[in-house]
Nucleic acid binder design. Structure first.
Lengths: 224, 224
DNA sequence: CTCCTTTCGATATTTTTTTATCGATATCAA
DNA sequence: TTGATATCGATAAAAAAATATCGAAAGGAG
């Protein structure tokens, strides 16, 4: 057999590190907002609930400046470094396909902007929503998708359509030049090499949580 | 310093395995629906985009029956085993706090049900939404939260409120006896031991995707 | 100025997760 | 019946990620 997923994942930081960086960033921004100038790895560690060694290791890969003994890291610099590494310095435009419940929620979701992301428009086929605005963002007809994306050179797309339509939308996105896709349809999708797909299975995520709870209960019973 | 996160995570399966099981389950259910009776590890592997060895290893931890050479695994049995392991055999009731955009989306999200989860009601303070129904689920006032949860013995909660209210809601949930919390507010929350919290940072997730794309671009430029 | 404490950063170690390999076995076809 | 082969499961190896340890440096206290 062949070994599966062989996605784009260059650069030297681990996937796990990549997932922690935004958490560090958020914490640092908060501290910075409160006037703090320096922060030690253990403070970050406690806030994020990881070990301080891990924090230092993570920061090492992105920081342009060493931490200073007895003081810690310069927050301002750290923020700049992480943002640069994550690509937040150029606000990324994002398009969304599917203006149902979840789609609308994204249009209004606070916090994208602060992470350097900008959902510029939604697309749908349903005449009932096309032409309207949600949270100030236009809902356009899917027929206009291709041109819109091409002319704006948008490279990030969110899929929030029913399962059965998801693959079709993905293909459409790829055809329009989109390079990174965040998929919320509960279906595995196939994309050509060079296109990054992250499927976010909400049901599965919640299920994992429920599963943990379940097995926790079991353990408790065993102990009695 | 102290080593960080020390959460509930007993039983022998790895976290990574735990995250793949629902994906296997979904795939198996689809196949089963199409009348297939047996499936080999490589077929699952291809669908989920992992290696077949990994699939066998994962299944080993939960399956009550060995796979059969040349045939594969009995789908029906596998589904039952995974569901049992994940705790899907007792439909878990879930409550949601925050009936804004994201909250409403969850109330209507297809796919929870099929994963053994049942969002029974939403709670909010906003009089404009309280008393209404969304996707057939009632939106109740937050004042009734405690009683509702206690009498129904609900143990899973979803937080979909603005950041500033999140910790308060978490405390309320814990007070009402909830043991597992899925948090969508972009804030780190603190919970007592024994309560599982999974913070789902949508902005960060999208940011990670954008970051990958960004660094991919960088690499391409370097190569030219 | 000197000592003390905090914190870093480098290295080594452990743990976890994934992949590779290979003999055994059960089904299918002739 | 017999042989070919897809597929499993066990074991070993590799890779990846997290943790432990410790000397060095830098700021603060006396």
């Amino acid at each position: 057999m062949k070994t599966g997923a062989n996605f784009v994942e260059r650069k030297d930081v681990s996937k796990a590190t990549l997932e922690r960086l935004p958490l560090y960033l958020r914490f640092l921004q908060e501290e910075s907002g409160r006037g703090v100038e320096y922060v030690s790895s253990s403070v970050i560690a406690d806030a994020i609930m990881v070990s301080s060694v891990l924090v230092r290791k993570d920061l090492e890969s992105v920081s342009s400046e060493s931490g200073r003994p007895r003081l810690g890291f310069r927050i301002a610099r750290l923020i700049a470094d992480i943002e640069k590494f994550l690509g937040y310095d150029n606000l990324s435009d994002v398009v969304l396909v599917g203006a149902g419940g979840l789609g609308k929620a994204f249009l209004g979701y606070e916090g994208f902007r602060s992470n350097g992301l900008n959902v510029v428009a939604a697309f749908d086929k349903d005449e009932k929503v096309v032409g309207k605005e949600v949270a100030g963002k236009p809902v356009l007809h899917l027929d206009d998708f291709d041109e819109f994306v091409r002319t704006r050179k948008i490279r990030i797309g969110i899929i929030a359509v029913p399962k059965r339509a998801a693959q079709e939308i993905l293909d459409k996105m790829v055809g329009a030049g989109i390079k990174a896709i965040w998929n919320f349809a509960p279906a595995p999708l196939y994309a050509p090499r060079g296109v990054i797909v992250k499927t976010e299975d909400l049901a599965a995520s919640l299920a994992i949580l429920a599963g943990k709870l379940y097995r926790l209960d079991m353990d408790e019973k065993e102990q009695l």
